[in-house]
């Protein structure tokens, strides 16, 4: 069942979004979303790792013994995370410092393992790569939405550029941990309420 890239894109970006519908990869989406810059870098890093690890694991899917599957997956993911980490340290040292341990924690991000298990295992390399890439981009999209809300209300800036022209009193709570929980929680709430309504409507 090799799907078309466009179909994969639609499922992964909207209907089955990894963060909001599957509730995976939550740790980093809560932690880095207090600024747009960090979220963008984190999202692209994760997309890179998911795409390439899905590609690699799918290409190797027939030669990995079933029992050591998890170990091989973790190692492949760790190798790509090291690429991302070294790249960030070399070219974006500021952001690398701000993201701190969360770059290394991409290894334990459930999205990557989830895509490797659920899709790359059973599908040829190229669709697997698209699947991973779009799962990562769906994650990036959610991160950017949450970061937009938090950064505008918390700092009055977008990508560090001041947009607070009317002297709005910024809300410090928005850049603190609780706001991350509230915003992602509300987004999940809205989406699942809509999905329930749709399901109920379809049943009638």
């Amino acid at each position: 069942m090799a799907d078309k890239p466009m179909a994969i894109a639609k499922t992964q970006l909207f209907t089955e979004n990894q963060v909001l519908r599957q509730v995976l990869g939550i740790c980093s989406s809560l932690a880095v979303t207090n600024s747009m810059n960090n979220s963008l870098v984190m999202g692209l890093g994760l997309s890179f790792v998911t795409a390439l690890s899905s590609l690699t694991l799918s290409a190797m899917r027939n030669i990995i013994p079933h029992r050591v599957r998890m170990l091989v997956q973790t190692l492949v993911i760790a190798v790509y995370v090291i690429f991302v980490d070294l790249f960030l340290q070399a070219f974006l040292p500021e952001i690398s410092k701000q993201l701190g341990p969360y770059v290394g924690l991409i290894i334990t991000n459930c999205i990557i393992m989830g895509r490797a298990e659920a899709y790359a295992q059973k599908n040829p390399p190229i669709p697997a790569m698209f699947d991973g890439l779009f799962a990562g981009l769906g994650y990036t999209g959610v991160l950017l939405i949450v970061a937009l809300i938090r950064e505008v209300l918390g700092f009055g800036t977008i990508f560090g550029i001041n947009v607070n022209l009317i002297g709005f009193q910024t809300w410090t709570i928005m850049i603190m941990p609780p706001a991350a929980f509230f915003i992602i929680g509300s987004l999940i709430w809205v989406l699942s309420a809509r999905a329930q309504k749709k399901a109920a409507g379809g049943a009638k």
Partner: peptide
């Protein structure tokens, strides 16, 4: 509970309130 909130959304909001208390 209001429709759609049960499950992860509720846990997030509870955790948010807990995090606020811990501040």
């Amino acid at each position: 509970l209001p429709p759609g909130i049960s499950g992860p959304a509720l846990s997030f909001i509870i955790t948010g309130i807990m995090a606020m208390a811990f501040i």
